[in-house]
Nucleic acid binder design. Sequence first.
DNA 1: CTTAAAAATGACCAAGTGGTCACAAAGACC
DNA 2: GGTCTTTGTGACCACTTGGTCATTTTTAAG
Lengths: 213, 213
Amino acid sequence: MEAKKTFFNLPEEKQKRVLETALEEFSENGYEGASINLIVSKLGIAKGSIYQYFTDKKSLFLYIFDYAVELIRKTLKQVKHETREEPTFERIRRSLLAGVDFIERHPFIYRGYLKMMFEREVPFRQELLQKIRLFSSEYLTSLLIEGREKGEVRKDVNLETMVFLLDAVMDRFLQAYAVPYLDSSLHIHGAKRLEIERRVDELVEAIRRGIGN
Amino acid sequence: MEAKKTFFNLPEEKQKRVLETALEEFSENGYEGASINLIVSKLGIAKGSIYQYFTDKKSLFLYIFDYAVELIRKTLKQVKHETREEPTFERIRRSLLAGVDFIERHPFIYRGYLKMMFEREVPFRQELLQKIRLFSSEYLTSLLIEGREKGEVRKDVNLETMVFLLDAVMDRFLQAYAVPYLDSSLHIHGAKRLEIERRVDELVEAIRRGIGN
DNA sequence: CTTAAAAATGACCAAGTGGTCACAAAGACC
DNA sequence: GGTCTTTGTGACCACTTGGTCATTTTTAAG
């Protein structure tokens, strides 16, 4: 329980406005950097008010985190279901594109995740990050295991190694898409959908076939 | 010119102590989060003193950044030279291990780099990051081009795509090594050298041969 | 309209921030 | 010794931070 009862008595519309505003502030400035003063000022409410919704900065942050995690969880589950009949590397391709769509729809969530990854003072950072990494890890693991059963994925390569490789490449791809200056070589930030799909195809193919002769 | 003349008049030993202390503070707390008050307190000097060495927080940061970049540049150059006769994937292997060694020798530099990657208020962040990414990118590109000439690297895969893939996997590997909670699946953080080498071998092999059948 | 409970308010607090500056101490040269 | 320049100092400044709380405003019930 992280929010006070008063918060839930608010009209849903206002609840959402509070959440989205705070999410934006946290994702742009990190936990420490986020300013309660700025949040209330943007919302046009008094400082005291927000402390009637949440006991303190930490609980506000945690509430928003849970809100975001739930969105991610749902999205992954859906993609997994939608592609359940597809070949493994097609599923990987689709997962990447789903990530792109997610960032498009919820830009502040993914950026917030990147922020907290390397911040020190985030409360429960370790636990929170593991929660997320576990999603991704479990998701890719199950994809690869099913792929092995179908004979589409190598059996002579360590499963952990493959998960690591996939996770690294996919995450970096999304980083490049979400944050302009991380996109030094691929030029996918702000690119058209068609161009992005082309890049995804190339990348997935490189992962599948390898880059050595 | 970022440091004042007074700084250079200091005994070298003290210069280094100042730099290392500030580097540690910046790398642990990021640019905004780093506290000048804490730095001078750790150094046991008066607040005013540090403003006689550097004009402000920004110039102190930039000076330290250059100091760090120079170290990285030298290391990369050396590895490139040392492995110039080796096969391409052996060079990649060695580069990864050199990264591990670098982190071991300069833990605050790599962590600082990760911090500033997602921080907003770092001065000239974009330019600084591109400086670093360019190193990595140019390094890998030249490795792969030479590898192609030797017939060890595929010619039917986009060069940019391969650089991206390598960069992503290598960087993530070092992240996992440097930051415990980013190492969710590979368990290389704090692992013995032998175990790390085994992981590197597996990973490089997966990149070379691909993971698909 | 009265009353009581719920919600909103903003002046205020202690603590921390980067940065300044008048002054003191130390060094260097004669 | 005296004089002049370079370093070192820390009280102080304006400003921001997260958080509090006595007080007012709004809402709901009878």
